[in-house]
Amino acid sequence: MMLSYLKKDIRFSSKWLMIAAAYCLIAGFLLVKERNDSLFFVEFLIPFFVVYFPLGRLMNLEDPKDTRDFIRRMPQSKYGRAIARIIYILSLLVFSFAVKIIYKYLLIEGYDLIADGSLEKEIAVFLAFLVYFLTVLIVFYKVSFHAAQNIGLLLCAVIFLIELIGKYTKIRIGLPAVGPVAAIVLFIILIAGLIIGVLKAENSRTK
């Protein structure tokens, strides 16, 4: 049953999946090549849009009340629909990170995922995105697509603000005491909570 929902998600967003894949391959290449000593845009823009294009499309498609009711009436194994959506997000994230890492290997001289602590950084960024998309999913299930979209805008605004503050002032906003490994542990705890949140949000929509 869960597979049926995953198949549906892939089928209904197929056009956007192709656009996301093309974007990932082209923009990924260009952003890594023209990185100008900063991988910020590579780290942020590739996974964000690769997941957000098709996921946003699906959420938009399923946002009308009629569609939500239509899906709610359908049978499912326990949490099947939510798990299918989480797998969908995870697959896109893995794809975007794989492409990103391959481009780094190909285009950045001396890049080594294992040797210089990059792996921990990649995992931490991966988990940060997972936290974000799971939050989006909870808000979508609980409230609406528009509310979920605003989380993205809010996050974008915060990121750019932090970047600007960091660039033009001496203020540094972040968690300097937390290294990648500690961040990974924190993210995993957070993600576990969010996954439970997604499952519950998807399952408790009868009012």
Partner: peptide, 12 residues
């Protein structure tokens, strides 16, 4: 169950 509200997957 069929309802009058049939704005379902309209782009598909």
């Amino acid at each position: 169950f069929v309802s009058q509200e049939l704005n379902i997957y309209s782009n598909q």
